[in-house]
Amino acid sequence: MKQIINEIPIKTTNSFKVNGLEIEIPDNITTHFHGYEVNDDHNLILETTKTTIMNHDAVKLNIKITSNNESPIIFNYYFDQADNLIEEINIEVLNNVHANIIFNYAALSKEQHFHYLKQTIKLDNESSLNFSTINMLSSNATSIIKVDNEVLSNANLTYNLIDLGGSTKVSSSYGKTYDNAINNLNVIYLGTNEDLIDTNYYYINEETLANCAINVQGILLDHAKKTFRGTIEFVSGATSSVGNEIENCMMLSNDASSISVPLLLCNEEDVIGSHSASNGEINKDQLFYLMSKGLTKKEAINIIIMANINPILNNINNEKIVNDITHSIISVL
């Protein structure tokens, strides 16, 4: 079944085909998965049910976080052989609760896994959540991640998406930020071989003093193709609010291609909004400087890339997972 997804909120000329992504969701995909492992669930209310997503049977997991946790609650999903997963995960962080959660998707085999993840996250007043979704599926997988979030008054969400696995990586995030709340999206993507990466992030400052940010760091190799769509919108009444958007695409191959569509939509005068995008090879001056200090070109490239992505990885409070991510990236450079 063909679907148009990742549509930008305001259409533009059709010549670059950036208004949305037409994607084929196979009709014959059925959820076949043995479940997740969680390291610590005593602060959670978990409820698993069945649901339907895009006419496919799916798994639904509702999570209510009722008390603080300092070290992260980690949900590990291991895809093996014929595993496919279509799932919906709904997370609510209750008032004044401060939580830290990681959803880690890894592959045990190199089959063509299919993973469709629909997440909704709601942060109640005064709460905070440091949330990471890590896609380290096999290079043959298809990964579609769709996140909706709402950050209520004085709450603080940091959402980290590490999108490394799969030959097709599609992600979207729709965020609403309310009174004096903070809503940060951090993304790292990696494209190799003939990978297709397609993103659409749309964050809205709904009320006064709302603060949202989109920070995307990407690495493209080989013939990978990436389309980045990012939108920050200020609605009327979102006075004294702030929105920033940064996209940095490090293109390590002359055969890679990069499309960027960073939108800034403003219906309120009393705001500070900015976006910036940069695309291209690694800065030659930086490379030269590091190589003049005795590093090889490969070592210098690794250092520059890690310098760009480490501020995001630092949000993930699990050393093993960060090491796995780092190794996964360095091994293909």
């Binding site: 293109m251 499309i259 569509v261 705001v271 910036s276 940069s278």
Partner: peptide
């Protein structure tokens, strides 16, 4: 209302590309 809708389509890596926008 003020909207900024930039699109860039880049097909080699030997370039210097920067786009900046601000509203206030």
């Amino acid at each position: 209302r003020s909207d900024t809708i930039p699109v860039s389509n880049i097909n080699n890596n030997q370039i210097l590309f920067s786009h900046e926008a601000s509203v206030g």
